[in-house]
Write a protein that binds this DNA or RNA. Sequence first.
DNA 1: TAAATATTTCAATTATCATCGAAATATGGA
DNA 2: TCCATATTTCGATGATAATTGAAATATTTA
Lengths: 230, 230
Amino acid sequence: MIVNSNVAKVASLVSEPSRAAILTVLLDGRYHTVNELAHMARIKPQTASFHLKKMLDAQVVTAEKQGRHRYYGIMNQEVAQVMESFLSIAPPAEIKSLHHASEDKAIRLARTCYDHLAGNLGVQLTESLKRKGFITEENDTFSVTEDGKAFFHSMQIDLTSLKKKRRSFSHKCLDWSERRHHLAGALGNAILEKLLERNWIQRIPKSRAIKITPRGMKGLKETFAIDMDR
Amino acid sequence: MIVNSNVAKVASLVSEPSRAAILTVLLDGRYHTVNELAHMARIKPQTASFHLKKMLDAQVVTAEKQGRHRYYGIMNQEVAQVMESFLSIAPPAEIKSLHHASEDKAIRLARTCYDHLAGNLGVQLTESLKRKGFITEENDTFSVTEDGKAFFHSMQIDLTSLKKKRRSFSHKCLDWSERRHHLAGALGNAILEKLLERNWIQRIPKSRAIKITPRGMKGLKETFAIDMDR
DNA sequence: TAAATATTTCAATTATCATCGAAATATGGA
DNA sequence: TCCATATTTCGATGATAATTGAAATATTTA
């Protein structure tokens, strides 16, 4: 269970449509400029700035200045998870166009959730790791088994350095589209980065959706026994 | 970019103080009337009705009409979970429990509801049947499992003949004193008759109240693991 | 230095929403 | 039937907060 004093704040901030739209965009884990966010939320930059200041004060987002731009990003994992949990009980968004339909399909298939993999791919990957006995399920977290240690070593993922980070090493994150848990935390992040590095997956610009490359299809099948081809 | 505007709606339902107070009460899993909820949230019944309608439309709560009362309850486990995690951080104003000056204890303990058992006994019996896996909960009805068939046979209740009756075989009935569902319909009636026949319970003249006999206390404990003695 | 762009601040307007009195509707009981 | 109670609907009010034009500030580029 998430214990976070920001939950209440986040909930009240999320309840405003423009802010919810902004936060949804920021769920991709990347930083965006005020103009970008304003355009995506269909409001004027002044309005976006007004909302972003509010969320900055509430420590729901962070800002980084770079030249005349100001890049806004989501504050942390907890905020992302509160957003996702709201997504899990909210009725699905109305799909208005063919373009939206295909985007919806893509985002359900594979996407980033803050800084780790989510969607069908994220859940399947987590299931595979469990099935192969590399991770075991605890209450709110996953633990790496002895077999798992060897496996991640072979994947060139250094668990020791991950554990040194201040953030959670590995915890469960509820997937709104799959309604199941996927792997989050430093380990989830490391896996995402590794798959990007190997060019098994690619980020789709201006979206949280992830594309699986032909090489990725092959790799996922061989390493994880996941067939995303169907 | 798809922005799920429903997230904002769901979040706004939770983040409004009066609604949060109402939802907190409903987290007990029971059903409550509009007046009760209004009193507990310290708002007028019109206002409570206004909020409840909103939450009903958003499928955050359910409603069931019984006479001139309308009982509201929380929609499902998912909503409860989001509420729990939200409220565990920011508990709203404390709820003063209603003090009912004169309560008929007997009628709350056990009574008939039309032609089946209600009150604490009725609810406990239903819960026991569920717990033991003899019945399962459907939308508005209960179904008898394979184990249940054997059990009712051992109780000398003939399900086949019950199903032939034109009336509903088994449906849920909201218990006003327990605010939970109990078993009604032909099956509920058959159980009542069987317990009367075995002299586990007796009707109290000129009342809907039911008296549990010493033999009944023993039988309920042995057969259903229900202790009505406390 | 001047022009263009990004963002914020300010002030005024507008929109939204909770609240509650009054009245309507529905039901139970005498 | 009439009366009491439960709930909803309607309409008005007031408080709060979102929105945006105008202007200020900051930074890059020419």
